[in-house]
């Protein structure tokens, strides 16, 4: 093993800059204009590497979300948390009258 991760037969065309811009918008990360080219290149390399998976036959294989073979525990419906607003808001960037402040939200 340790086959170097070479790009397999491409199943997707290399990722385009506008797609990375779209991802950056979804992820709410600003990318400066002068960096977008390099960021796209790096991500294209990573996507080309992970594209190896496309060659694997996974027909009939169940997706595995969690390695733990267990089921969700249920919590009794009891109020256990009291008011800790002062403690939490002491570390908040901007608060007023107990509210977190953000620039005007438009619905």
């Amino acid at each position: 093993m340790t086959t170097p991760p070479t790009a397999p037969p491409a199943t997707h065309a290399a990722v385009q800059q506008d797609e990375i811009e779209k991802m950056a918008e979804l992820a709410r990360i600003r990318i400066a204009d002068h960096q977008i080219g390099e960021v796209t290149e790096r991500i294209a390399d990573i996507l080309a590497m992970v594209d190896q998976l496309q060659a694997v036959d996974t027909a009939g294989v169940e997706a595995m979300a969690n390695p733990l073979d267990a089921v969700q525990r249920l919590r009794p419906d009891i109020v256990t948390e009291g008011d800790q607003r002062e403690v939490f808001q002491a570390i908040a960037p901007a608060v007023e009258n107990g509210l977190y402040l953000v620039p005007k939200v438009i619905d």
Binding site: A94, N97, Y100, L101, V102, K104, V105
Partner: peptide, 15 residues
């Protein structure tokens, strides 16, 4: 909830 009343043009968030 987002509260839009008078916070100097900002929105207040109540969670």
């Amino acid at each position: 909830k987002s509260l839009h009343e008078d916070f100097h043009g900002q929105t207040g968030i109540d969670l």
